[in-house]
Each structure stands twice: as structure tokens, then as C-alpha cells.
Design a protein around this nucleic acid. Structure first.
Lengths: 188, 188
DNA sequence: CGGCGCATGTAACAAGTTACATGATTTG
DNA sequence: CAAATCATGTAACTTGTTACATGCGCCG
């Protein structure tokens, strides 16, 4: 149940239309909670029906039918309650770790290229995050809001750092392995 | 599309019934890919229909109606192909990071207890993993299969290490914050 | 035989993904 | 006006979650 709260957070930061939200989910918020425009429109409908947000009357009625939403008091209350709510930590569920385990059973043929590709992508992501950090948080921020945003960004940086390190380790291990698996049944 | 491959991997390691699989998913494999018994039964049905696995005839026909499954050659081929397949890395999608961001907007009231709770849980998980490492991998393993399993375990250890470190940082930041948010509209 | 635990499921729902549909506005 | 783009939205499907149903053997 995180998507509605992601949207409430985004709308509190700045009232927006569906497409604007989608774009913001492709940027800052989407770095740790991604969503497609279909999900967002569906959820906006639900939130409006639940009385947590409302559509603003269009400022320029003639120019297109863009709908801007803003958060109602009930929505802010819901978000405040959610921040303090007890929820179990999300367990790890990563396909790449699973593939590594599968490679232990059927052999690592072809996995190396995929590991390299992932390593490049994570390195790029890490650079992007550190770039944002340098630009937006050159010093420890004073404002509570900025401190928490910085904390979230540092979380992203540390996660990407983990992946880069782990993938390098994985590559080193896979590189010095035989291509073919010593098969028990078929080839042995 | 990872659950079927998780099941194929588990069945190659050892043919099992649905419930046995469920239990193994609560242990080793579930550490990085969790699944409930309902998911597993549904997926076993699909895999059997697709000809990737088959049910073994019961060894002791009288004792209950447990169904043991084993992987067919087509299943092994599918898993081998999946290991080498190109797939995009999973983007970060974590509710706790999102809550931290929300706390930046509505204030961090009540979040501290939740952070503490998560910290304890991650510390416990980390201890569990390092315990497994000490018991199962006292030295760098020779076998390919063991090397890859160790790699996966190290991934889990490093991820939990990240969470412990990040949560301590987050707690330190939240502790020295004012309980009330300087509100723009309502309280200001 | 009645209740308990084991093992295999069904049903209903929620969340996320992929493909397509509709209308309106701008641009050539 | 045709084509491209913007903006909103439907539909169908897959994956994951929660609650319940069924049949069997064991134990008292």
C-alpha cells in the first residue's frame, strides 16, 4: 500500500496533473518508488473517491483538459499516520541473486555478459546519484525536509555502491570458472 | 518471471512436494526470493502443464497423497537459458525510503520507533546470515556450486549491513529533530 | 468418532505490467 | 486537413496476498 502514499507525498510537495506526476516519478521519487502513468491515473481516481485529494478547477479553462490535483486535510492525515505505522521490512527479492543461485545448478554460461551489463548500469546510476548529491547537498542541510531528502539519497547511493561492489566480486568469481557445468545426469 | 525459475532451481537441487518446497522457500531460497504455498502450488501446476516438470509416482502409495515433482530436460534447458537472458536490473522500490521522504513533508512523528524496530530486525537477519556463513563457508569453497552459493549469501550479508548502517544514520538524524513539523498552512 | 495437524488446493482480491483507445492541440 | 504530440484513460493479463475449503491420518 505504498503507491497512494507516494502520490500524496508528491502532491503535497507540489500539486500536479497525472502526467506531471508521471514525469516526477521518472525522476526524484521514482528513484525509490517507480510507477507507470496507468497506475498513477488509477490511483488518483481512488484517492479522489476516498476524499483524500481533489481536482482543482482548471486555471485556464480553454487550454486542454489537464486536471490538477491537490491534497485535502484527510489526505495529509492519512500520510502522517502512515509515516508512524508499523510495517514489516520488505524482504529481499532480487532476480539477479536468484540467477546466481540457478547458475550454481545449471552452470554460469552466458551470465558473465549480463553481470557486466548490470555493473555498467549500476555504475551509471551511482554516478547520477553522487552528481545530485554534489549539486544539491554540498553541505549538511539545516532544514528538516532537506536532511531527510539527503538521507534518502544517501540510501540510494549506498545501495548502488553495494551492487557495484557485489557485481565486481561476482564477475571475478564467474570469470575463473569453467564454462561447462560438470553435469550429473546428462553429460557426466 | 522469476518464481518459476526459483522453483526449477529448488527442484533441481532436490525433487520435492509442494509443502516441502514451501518450507525450503522459508529457509535458504526464500532469503532472496520468498513465496507462499499458494503461489507455489499454482506455479507447480503451470510448470507441469508446460512440460517443464512432472509429478513422480508415489513411492509409498498408501501413505498420504503427497506429490513429488522433478525437473524434466525441457525445464533444465529453460533455466539454463534464463541464467544467460538479458533482463533489466530491478529498480529500488522500498517503502521505508518512501516513508522517510514522506516524513520530510508531514514530519517525522512516530517514525523513530519504527526505525528502531527495523534496525533490530535487520541486525537479527544479519546475525543469522553471518552465522550461516561461519558454519557453511569457513574457507573459500572449491566447488563452483558452493562458490556461487557463498556469493549469494555474501550479497544478503552486505545488503543487511547496508540497512543496519543506514538505519543508524537515519535514527541519529531523526532523534535530533523537532517532533512537530513547521507547518505551512494549518499550524503556522 | 471428534478434534488436530498435514498436505493440497480454490476463490477473491490487490498491485503491477503491457497494449491499446480516445480526444484535443500543435505543426507542417 | 494529416501527422505528431500531449493528456487521460480502458482492458486484459500477470504476479503476489489473504482467507477459506477439502481430504487424509493420527491421537485420545
Amino acid at each position: 500500500m505504498s503507491l497512494p502514499h507516494a502520490i500524496l507525498t508528491a502532491l503535497l510537495e507540489k500539486p500536479s496533473s497525472g502526467l506531471e506526476l508521471t514525469r516526477r516519478f521518472d525522476k526524484s521519487i521514482g528513484y525509490f518508488w517507480s510507477a507507470t502513468h496507468q497506475q498513477i491515473y488509477r490511483e488518483l481516481g481512488k484517492l479522489e473517491a476516498a476524499g483524500l485529494i481533489r481536482a482543482l478547477p482548471p486555471v485556464q479553462p480553454t487550454r486542454g483538459q489537464k486536471k490538477e490535483y491537490e491534497v485535502l486535510p484527510a489526505g495529509r492525515e492519512e500520510l502522517t499516520a502512515w509515516v508512524a505505522r508499523t510495517e514489516e521490512p520488505k524482504q529481499i527479492r532480487d532476480p539477479l541473486l536468484l540467477r546466481m543461485r540457478a547458475a550454481g545448478v545449471v552452470g554460469p554460461q552466458g551470465l558473465e555478459a549480463e553481470l557486466r551489463r548490470h555493473l555498467d548500469l549500476h555504475r551509471a546510476q551511482l554516478e547520477k546519484y553522487t552528481g545530485i548529491e554534489e549539486r544539491h547537498f554540498p553541505a549538511v542541510p539545516d532544514e528538516v525536509e532537506d536532511r531527510l531528502r539527503h538521507l534518502v539519497l544517501r540510501g540510494g547511493i549506498q545501495l548502488e555502491t553495494f551492487w557495484v561492489a557485489w557485481l565486481m566480486e561476482a564477475l571475478a568469481a564467474v570469470e575463473q570458472m569453467p564454462e561447462q557445468m560438470p553435469e550429473q545426469g546428462a553429460a557426466g
